[in-house]
Design a protein around this nucleic acid. Structure first.
Lengths: 175, 175
DNA sequence: GGAAACTGATAGATCAATCAATAACTCGAA
DNA sequence: TTCGAGTTATTGATTGATCTATCAGTTTCC
């Protein structure tokens, strides 16, 4: 037989492909409703091979979440460095977040992570750490006070919900 | 054998007991990670009997969500009626929402509903309808403009996340 | 005795994870 | 320049657990 291996990859390459596939699936269906079979199918590999790349489903989920945190943080910091003044920085960061809006995957990922964290102490610890890390990065990059930070993140959370629900009420305005 | 039925109830009574049990379970673990077995165990009945009270798990989940929407809406409307002035009404409603904070179940329920809705068109339609209904109720009860409504709901969403993650950053302030 | 409340048993599907095995690439030696 | 040994990538088969939903039957009350 030997149907010809269409594409054999480096472990590292494959790992990133799996991460990308998992991101899409987790974003849409959440942690528990996403099966490793679906992720594997989307990544174009067999289901058991996932376990050669990640020790378990939970670790894969957290890897996806950590990557999202890293991307969001990087976008925020870059935006903040592009202008001067606290309010200007916050506005620029709001703009940056809007880019994530086009492809809602990033936002839904966060929402799913927060939901999954609620009932799972281990997950909760890691995900709270990720959230706090973004919070601290924004605080440091802007120098904003607690009140403005709360408003900024509150609006971000509303955008997340808007992305999940396809809300008409949350398709406009910029903070 | 016949171990003696400890407590036999009306269908309606039992239904509400199941709703209460389901609320706790869904709030903590979300739609997919909550099994009907766990709900039944918490409600003190056998698992199959749930299907005599609700046609399926999805309907039960939506019933829980609808009840939450009703409670939140009622609390908001009552708070708004207690004072005069748009800002005063919004502040009173923020106060009312804080009451839900003590028992985080209500907040987590919403977060879980939003997450479950993301990847399920049918669920999404119902849950978006619930969210919009709260939004409209608040708009009508306060007469606030879109900008203030966005800020109000944004803060609410942040509280939801705070409840799910046990965030230190979101344990203070009142809008 | 008949309706309403309730359970036991179970079918059928799915899922995370393990294991043994195979295919393909790398690179040094002949 | 080929051979082959070792390494890396990848899969098939399978296990045991779990979950939704159904159905037939039993208890309890009026």
């Amino acid at each position: 037989m030997a149907v010809a291996t269409t594409n054999r990859m480096t472990g590292e390459e494959r790992r990133e492909h799996v991460l990308a596939a998992a991101k899409r699936e987790f974003a849409e269906n959440g942690y528990h409703a996403t099966s490793t079979t679906r992720i594997a199918k989307r990544a174009g590999i067999s289901q058991p091979y996932i376990y050669a790349l990640f020790p378990d489903k939970r670790t894969l989920f957290l890897a996806v979440y950590d990557a999202t945190v890293a991307r969001v943080t990087a976008a925020f910091v870059a935006a903040a460095e592009s202008v001067e003044g606290i309010d200007e920085k916050l506005a620029a960061m709001g703009e940056a977040y809007s880019e994530f809006l086009e492809d809602r995957v990033e936002l839904q990922c966060q929402l799913q992570a927060h939901a999954a964290a609620a009932g799972d102490p281990d997950l909760q610890a890691d995900i709270r750490a990720g959230f706090s890390s973004i919070w601290r990065a924004v605080a440091k990059a802007t120098g904003a006070d607690q009140e403005r930070l709360v408003a900024f993140f509150a609006y971000g959370m509303l955008l997340n919900v808007g992305a999940a629900l396809d809300l008409p009420e949350v398709a406009e305005k910029g903070c």
